[in-house]
């Protein structure tokens, strides 16, 4: 990337291409990207799947009572999300634990894989996070109506508020309900994209000798921050899914 930038920037001044890393390219050449074309998206998602299998299937293959390192991590992840689902949605939310754990692991590994140099971050794309968020939104909404029937609408009718305020609150609640998938998806994609772009911008500054040390230290620092953000965003996405699921299962305030 730096070579590219340097080559293109020989006209004078710095040329940054912080967004090049997000480009989607067909893996085996060709310009046309059809829906089935294997692309770098395919590759990095497949790697995420392999990581999931490596951690949760191969890591636990010994089934030891006293766990080794990998098995400990797998059990930790399992316990972490299981407890989150149980605490936030209650006992009846446990049924949806595999679904939520799938989301968590996919986002977590996509985020962490995206931190590898020269990698591609699938979760930095709004198309991916929007599908994830819409899947949660639709599932939760349908589940809410199936489980509670029309009384699911009481989610929007704040019975603890004064009667005069309730219609206004209902409007606000409905708007906030439909904004959920938007915020849910843009939060994740935005965090991922912004962090990676900032790292790239600082890496671009490293071309200038005078500020190179500062730029490199900044890259290292932001990288550390991004490791944290990667986990936190996976956590936030998962816990919000749990919260939405709780609303669907127990819509009454």
């Amino acid at each position: 990337m730096a070579d590219d930038a340097a080559a293109q920037g020989d006209g004078g001044g710095l040329v940054f291409h912080p967004l090049d890393q997000f480009e989607i390219k067909a893996l085996f050449g060709g310009d046309a990207i059809h829906w089935y074309t294997p692309t770098n998206v395919t590759m990095w998602m497949a790697l995420a799947v392999l990581c999931v299998i490596g951690l949760l299937v191969l890591g636990t293959s010994k089934r030891s009572i006293v766990p080794g390192r990998t098995q400990s991590v797998a059990e930790l992840a399992y316990g972490f999300v299981y407890k989150m689902v149980e605490d936030v949605t209650g006992k009846d939310g446990i049924r949806y634990f595999p679904y939520i754990f799938t989301l968590f692991l996919f986002i977590l590994f996509s985020n962490f894989l995206g931190l590898l140099p020269l990698s591609f971050t699938t979760t930095s794309h709004i198309a991916v996070t929007a599908v994830l968020a819409m899947a949660v939104f639709l599932t939760v909404t349908i589940l809410g109506f199936v489980k509670n029937g029309a009384s699911f609408l009481s989610l929007f009718w704040v019975s603890s508020a004064p009667l005069a305020l309730r219609p206004i609150l209902a409007v606000i609640e409905i708007i906030s309900y439909f904004v959920r998938p938007v915020s849910h998806s843009i939060r994740l994609a935005g965090n991922m994209m912004a962090g990676h772009a900032v790292i790239k911008v600082f890496a671009g500054f490293a071309q200038v000798l005078a500020i190179a040390p500062i730029a490199i230290i900044a890259v290292a620092a932001i990288y550390g921050l991004e490791v944290l953000v990667s986990f936190i965003q996976a956590y936030v996405f998962t816990i919000l899914t749990c919260v939405y699921l709780k609303d669907a299962l127990h819509p009454h305030h």
Binding site: I24, I33, H34, W35, Y36, T37, T39, V41, T42, M45, A46, A48, V49, V52, P98, Y99, T102, L103, L105, F106, T122, H125, A127, V128, V131, L132, A135
Partner: peptide, 14 residues
């Protein structure tokens, strides 16, 4: 393309 592969990935992980 992304949506297709995402769905494949999620189903596999699930």
């Amino acid at each position: 393309n992304q949506i297709f592969w995402l769905l494949v990935t999620l189903i596999v992980i699930y």
